[in-house]
Simulated assay, not measured.
Amino acid sequence: MEDKIRDLRSGIAIVFLSLISYLWLIPNQISVRKGVTIGADYFPKLIVMIVGICGMVLVIQGLTYLHKKGELNLSNVLGISNVTQLKKYLPHVIFLLSSVIYLIVMQYSGFIIASIPFLIFLLLFFGHSKIAWCSVVSVIFVLAIYLLFSNVFRIRFPAGPFGF
């Protein structure tokens, strides 16, 4: 039953974040020209809709299971026995905060300068112990991504103080 309650909570969170993304984040971040059938916001909105539908499936499955077991009530879902232990989610919070910091720093320092230390941090955070190996892999990977996207796909990254 605990798994279904977690599914229900996760589904609600996913649907909520999808709605915020669809109704507020995407329209404020992506400008679309008038009269265009498929604009720049089409694929982000499509992906957010798919994620939102998956969240709704989680909500429906959780509600259906709890209803069949006769345990669908607000006190059961929000009860003290089901309160999430926040210590379990500390690695997730650290990951999300580091990602937000990376996105902010990247605007000022540029893609390459911000991405190399961020990737080193992620590799070490997720279990690699050799910092020299993480550094080499990070430099190679970031440069490969930068060259591929800037030269082949003609996508511009945030330029840092050195112009790249």
Rank of each mutant, 00 (worst) to 15 (best):
N28R: 13
S109W: 10
F118I: 06
V36A: 03
G62N: 01
L66E: 11
N73S: 13
V100F: 15
I104G: 06
G70N: 08
Q85F: 05
S129C: 06
I60Y: 04
F16T: 14
R156Q: 15
E2W: 00
M56D: 04
G35K: 06
I80A: 13
L25K: 12
K87Q: 03
S150V: 04
L25M: 09
L103N: 08
I80V: 11
I116C: 08
Y65D: 14
W133P: 01
G35L: 00
M1I: 05
R9T: 02
I155P: 09
F43P: 01
K34A: 04
V152Q: 09
S10M: 11
F111W: 10
D7Q: 10
G11Q: 02
M1R: 01
L17C: 12
L17W: 10
L19S: 13
H67D: 05
L123M: 15
V139P: 05
M49H: 04
I53M: 05
H67I: 02
I120Y: 10
D41E: 07
R33C: 00
A40F: 06
V32P: 00
L8K: 00
P44V: 09
K130R: 15
I14E: 07
V32S: 12
S138K: 09
M49I: 11
V105R: 01
L74K: 01
Q29V: 06
L58Q: 02
P91E: 10
F153R: 14
V77K: 00
A159C: 09
S10L: 13
S138G: 13
T37P: 05
P161D: 12
T84W: 03
D7Y: 06
I131N: 12
F95T: 13
M1H: 05
H92Q: 12
Y108Q: 12
N76W: 03
L124D: 08
I47E: 00
Y22M: 14
L8V: 02
R156T: 12
